[in-house]
Amino acid sequence: MDITITTPALLFPAISVLFLAYSNRFLAIASRIREQHNLFNKTQSPVAKKQIDSLRLRIRFIVAMQVLGVVGIICCTLAMGLIFYGLQYYGNMTFGFSMVFIVLSLLASISELLLSTKALNIELEDMEAHSS
């Protein structure tokens, strides 16, 4: 199957929305880390310690999401260039790689979301323990 130059171009609007979401996640986690830093310095709370480990892992996933997304965009752009220059086979292959990188980026996003949920449950459990 041959794709046209417009096929990879269709991913660009989706990618910009994706990176906006990834950037917002990064900014939110950075803010949360600063809050946890202040809390831990004041209280030495064991709950804050649990959150530190979770936050460190979430940062890794967010970096992976962004790197994989960028590689996907680069491959997508390269695919457009290869198709433009008549190298259809290589363009198709490169476009396939771009889709793989974007899917991996989305899978990393799901993993980070699951970690985020787990971190929220740690906070909720702590609040429940202190309310009884």
Rank of each mutant, 00 (worst) to 15 (best):
Y85V: 06
Q88M: 05
S98F: 08
L78P: 01
N38Q: 12
T7W: 03
R32K: 06
A64S: 09
N38L: 12
Q51F: 11
N24F: 13
V63R: 08
Y90F: 15
Q44Y: 12
Q44A: 14
S116T: 06
V100Y: 11
L104M: 13
A28V: 09
T6D: 15
L27G: 02
T6V: 08
Q44G: 13
I110P: 02
L106K: 01
S23R: 05
S98L: 07
Y89W: 09
R25D: 11
M93Q: 11
I33G: 01
R34S: 13
I110H: 06
L114K: 10
E123D: 14
S116Y: 09
K49A: 12
I110A: 14
V17K: 02
M80R: 01
C75G: 09
S23F: 13
L82F: 10
R58F: 04
S98G: 15
S111Q: 13
A119R: 02
T117L: 13
L11G: 03
T117V: 07
V100T: 11
V71N: 01
I122R: 02
E35F: 08
I52W: 09
N92P: 01
I122M: 04
L10C: 11
L55Q: 14
F61P: 01
V17E: 08
Y85G: 11
S16A: 15
L11H: 13
M99D: 05
F26Y: 06
R56N: 14
L18F: 14
V47Y: 09
L20F: 09
A108F: 10
Q44F: 10
A108G: 04
K118M: 11
H37S: 06
L27W: 05
I33F: 10
A119I: 03
R56T: 12
V67Q: 00
R60T: 02
N38K: 13
Y85L: 13
L55C: 03
L113W: 11
K118Q: 14
N121V: 08
F19P: 05
I15C: 06
L27C: 04
A79R: 03
L68R: 01
M99Q: 15
F101G: 07
G96D: 04
R32H: 03
S105P: 06
L68K: 06
V47A: 07
T77Y: 15
I73M: 14
V103Q: 04
Q51P: 00
M80Y: 01
T117Q: 12
F26P: 00
I3E: 01
M80L: 04
H37F: 12
P46W: 02
